[in-house]
């Protein structure tokens, strides 16, 4: 059996959680994601970097209200990959 739409990069638990949160919203701040996932900065950075390298997540650093903040969002490629992955999981469940 070949699962062409199954995405191993997205399927890792924390990355799946990140994609699910980003798909349900527009842009989320790095700090908020870290608190929701209850992981360290370095762990989240590593996951974000791998998703960013795959072109699934866009990272934007902006100065808001006098603070430098990092905003994360799903790219259109990331949204497609995530949707296909979820559909594949639904097909597996039947």
């Amino acid at each position: 059996m070949t699962n062409s739409r199954f995405n191993a990069l997205i399927h890792a638990p924390n990355r799946l959680h990140i994609c699910a949160m980003l798909s349900a919203s527009g842009e989320l701040e790095f700090k908020l994601l870290r608190e929701q996932l209850d992981v360290s900065d370095s762990v989240l950075s590593k996951h974000i970097k791998s998703l960013e390298e795959a072109g699934y997540v866009a990272v934007a650093k902006r100065r808001d209200f006098g603070h430098r903040r990092t905003w994360l969002s799903l790219t259109s490629a990331g949204r497609v990959a995530y949707t296909e992955h979820v559909n594949e999981l639904r097909e597996m469940v039947g």
Binding site: S25, G26, E27, L28, E29, K31, L32, R69, W71
Partner: peptide, 8 residues
């Protein structure tokens, strides 16, 4: 936005 969410 203050809480870390930018609603498009």
């Amino acid at each position: 936005r203050l809480l870390g969410v930018r609603a498009p």
